[in-house]
Design a binder for these strands. Structure first.
Lengths: 207, 207
DNA sequence: CTCCATTCTGCACCCACTGCAACTTTTCGT
DNA sequence: ACGAAAAGTTGCAGTGGGTGCAGAATGGAG
């Protein structure tokens, strides 16, 4: 996710970014004020200073705007490291490292993420859209795992691996939420990964 | 899930069940024929012989009708066994056993499940609704785990446990789908559980 | 058979979302 | 500096999903 000030981005691109951000903020602020059902697409568009038709040039649905989740993807540095078998050589640990890097990318969106999670908490009906957003990354994760497996003696399960990566993301987001958004979300990942290992890895009775 | 013929259910209840089943079948058959977008709520209601208003007395959305997933819950026998620490004493294995039992409950709905999964495969936009449907069981799973933890020396993680149960359900459904729905879905669970254990449980490099 | 509870249904309505075409703004090349 | 092309905004008409209300119809109980 490149920063506007760091590129020679044109006026048109800058205006698009600003408009999208304005729509998300308007949507989130209005929904937190009045509740999801009491806010229309027209309301959000008006608050952002564009037409309802323009709203739909940016978002396929009201849900999408309200969640306002940014597009993120694994940077080439992190992706290459993973594909070449790093950083630890252990599949599970390396998947967790990818998720940590992705969570770090979200730092500039912390405020929006907090609002988004607060809205999700109040409006369970947004769960499908939230799931859809996370699920879009599953394909990317699967591609990374298959690229790594091409040169690996011990391949990572390409069906379960992406699911585990998503589970780590969601559980870490839940832990961050339960801590009232104190600190950075990626700091909550290692304990979640440990608990997951403890849950699945234990064999025999007594658990 | 009681069978109609086995209870003294009234005519009203029987008609409700039959009407719901008719709506699901009409929805699924029409969507498989024409595609999701080409089928309206009016079409489905007409095919089932009720009004569109009645359609909405049964389903909150078109998506829900098209997926047609039955309400299932853990039977008391399975629930009690789990809560009392059985059947194996190992948390992960016992969660898997609960999921196996739930999948067995779906046997009478195999045809509808197949149609539902085929539709989800063709209409990726329904996937979030499908996952959200599964997710409704998360609370039930959490309650079971907390009940078991009340008397356990080694408690199961109450945040990660339900997520793992859902992951086992979805992965098993995927494996069943990939096998072209041959056999019973619960037969695909043990291999999934083994693969999951292998993925998370391995420590050190070489994975 | 009557009364009550439940369900069906028609209707009017709101809102989300889409496709099309005209207009406006930004970018690029000369 | 200017004109052409590309990209984006917007109004409009339209479709379909979904809701609340009230009257009609149906099933159950006594």
């Amino acid at each position: 996710m490149t920063d506007t000030a760091l590129t020679d981005e044109g006026l048109r691109e800058r205006k698009k970014r600003a408009r999208r951000a304005a729509l998300v903020e308007a949507a989130q602020v209005l929904v937190l004020e009045r509740g999801f059902d009491a806010v229309t697409v027209e309301d959000v568009a008006d608050a952002a200073g564009v037409s309802a038709r323009t709203f739909h040039n940016y978002f396929e649905s009201k849900d999408e705007a309200v969640l306002g989740l940014p597009d993120t993807s694994v940077g080439p540095e992190i992706g290459d490291r993973f594909v070449s078998g790093g950083p630890t050589g252990n599949g599970f640990d390396d998947m967790a490292a990818v998720i940590a890097a992705l969570l770090e990318c979200l730092a500039p969106y912390a405020e929006g993420m907090r609002r988004s999670m607060e809205i999700s908490r109040r409006e369970p009906r947004l769960l499908p859209q939230q799931i859809a957003f996370f699920d879009r990354q599953r394909e990317e994760f699967r591609a990374l795992i298959e690229a790594r497996n091409a040169g690996a003696a011990a391949p990572i399960d390409a069906e379960l691996g992406p699911r585990i990566m998503l589970l780590l993301t969601e559980s870490t987001a839940t832990a961050w939420s339960r801590a009232d958004y104190v600190g950075a979300p990626e700091d909550y990942l290692a304990p979640v990964a440990e608990r997951l290992r403890a849950l699945i890895g234990a064999e025999g009775p007594g658990h």
